[in-house]
Design a protein around this nucleic acid. Structure first.
Lengths: 135, 135
DNA sequence: GCGCACTAGTTGAATCTTCAACATATGTTC
DNA sequence: GAACATATGTTGAAGATTCAACTAGTGCGC
């Protein structure tokens, strides 16, 4: 646990100094970029990014004021809201991802035996499954 | 990473609702309880618990106001401060640890193949080593 | 023993997260 | 179709964390 905490700390500092993004902001941009039409309902996004809805709401407000994300209300469900990645958000993500991937490699991937890496993936996959979908 | 984040979230919620402690507070109590005479210099404690000094300072203030920790100045080095676990802190820790260990087992240990568990340990041990001592 | 660079720890403001309350919409039951 | 339980998303206040100063003490060089 200690290792994983320290690792995210490094990621966070790295993203923040080089690109002004926190890990959770980055996470949100990633999920949106992977979604069809680069947009998701808030609830789905919260689920994907493992954040509470409240937290997502606040974080989205920040991202919106940076111009990286935009929110629109959903026609089908009048309660619903779509968050979608702006073009600016997409290019910001691309830039950040390049550095981020390198940092991940440097402090995580390259440090660990490939077989152990697989074991880590298996292990935490099971943990996620055990924890169930929502928090 | 997602798995480990979700896992600490569970631990945090569990400790907080049952014992009114956050994971980082718990962490501090554990390190102190393991130290000789149940006390450590602030800097060492920060290092052991992977927290910044500032954060430790704030957290210790909280713990002190709960009566679980006490701070005394150090005779040798007049800048220094010893944090030590009170008796009350020790019994609070004992109570919390019982539940905590069980939660860890339930969502982590018991979910993972023993061999993979070892791999996880190896892997994050190396990450820690790669990251170096202080943050 | 004076000056200077460095270490220990704390503080306060800005930022981020959590929590509970809220407004609004949906759908189910009778 | 009215009442009720449930889902969606936001808000604001309280709590925690980060960051950049800051105080105070140590130790080294000369």
């Amino acid at each position: 646990m200690d290792g994983s905490v320290r690792l995210t700390e490094i990621m966070d500092r790295d993203l923040k100094t080089k690109h002004g993004l926190s890990v959770s902001e980055y996470e949100i941009l990633v999920r949106l970029s992977e979604a069809p039409e680069r947009r998701l309902r808030m609830a789905e996004l919260a689920e994907n990014a493992s954040q509470s809805r409240s937290r997502l709401s606040h974080t989205c407000s920040r991202l919106e004021s940076k111009g990286l994300v935009k929110r629109d209300s959903c026609p089908n469900d009048k309660r619903g809201v779509y968050a979608h990645l702006t073009d600016e958000g997409f290019t910001a993500l691309e830039r950040a991802a390049r550095d981020h991937v390198e940092t991940v490699r440097e402090f995580f991937i390259d440090v660990i035996e490939p077989a152990d890496l697989e074991a880590v993936g298996r292990a935490f996959g099971l943990v996620l499954k055990r924890l169930g979908p929502a928090s």
